[in-house]
């Protein structure tokens, strides 16, 4: 029996007359890499913001890591990590200071923090860069560091909002290696992306069109259903039905 860590039932968000997320229901299992796809304006970001506690749903139900989004947002926050498409570390702080800061606001003890910092730095091979400003690192390294910092406090679920925007394919591959490692440790990964090759890396994907989830299955099943050999085609067939855009 798979453990469910994210469960939504008819989760809806309205902004006035506009229904950004329309009755979305899905489940995500522990240790799963769940791809959340959709064209711009399809409602991905709104859905993700509700799950992270950044935005309060208009109606519906959702529980994250066993906690209710309406009643226990603070407990949810302790159990999730987040990394956004926009770069989420402080450029004018060193690598070490960034780790200390983010560990610190999640309430890690000094001892835990020292241990985690050593592990992280060794893992990423950043021993010589610990005291360098983040601004001086290449983009790929920054992104990997940002991900490692997002999972520093051992969250149950980590939300990645287009984490690999603007990164070259090789670095993206390395970034996904990190994601797989985390998933093997039992961390659930909830990732949005526009890259179809990345969609193939996911265990299951959902595709949102006009605020609704139109498809949800493994990449190979989706390709079978839509009778095509590439995820690109699957996405194209679904997304062109969209009536609204940005």
């Amino acid at each position: 029996m798979k453990e469910v860590v994210i469960k939504t039932e008819a989760l809806t968000k309205r902004f006035g007359d506009f229904v950004a997320a329309n009755a979305i229901s899905f489940e995500v299992y522990k240790g799963e890499i769940f791809g959340f796809l959709g064209a711009n304006g399809a409602g991905k970001t709104t859905a993700m913001r509700m799950l992270c506690g950044l935005s309060i749903p208009t109606s519906g139900k959702a529980s994250i890591a066993g906690f209710d989004v309406f009643r226990q947002p603070e407990l949810i926050k302790k159990n999730i990590g987040y990394m956004s498409q926009r770069f989420s570390l402080y450029e004018d702080l060193t690598v070490g200071e960034n780790i200390t800061f983010f560990g610190g606001i999640y309430g890690l003890s000094d001892k835990q923090l020292r241990q985690k910092k050593d592990d992280l730095v060794t893992n990423l091979g950043l021993q010589n860069e610990v005291n360098k400003l983040v601004a001086s690192l290449p983009l790929g390294w920054k992104q990997k560091l940002a991900f490692s910092v997002a999972v520093l406090h051992d969250p149950k679920i980590v939300f990645l909002d287009e984490p690999t925007g603007g990164v070259d394919p090789l670095t993206r591959r390395q970034f996904w290696d990190l994601i797989y490692e985390a998933a093997e440790r039992g961390v659930t990964i909830f990732v949005t992306t526009h890259y179809m090759d990345e969609a193939e890396y996911c265990h299951r994907i959902s595709i949102m069109v006009d605020g609704k989830i139109e498809a949800l299955d493994t990449p190979s099943n989706l390709k079978k259903i839509y009778n095509t050999g590439s995820m690109n085609d699957v996405f194209y067939q679904l997304a062109r039905k969209a009536k609204r855009s940005d």
Partner: peptide
Amino acid sequence: ETGTMEVLLVSPF
């Protein structure tokens, strides 16, 4: 602007 605010708001801080 840099997006770090979102990260802070998602944290328990």
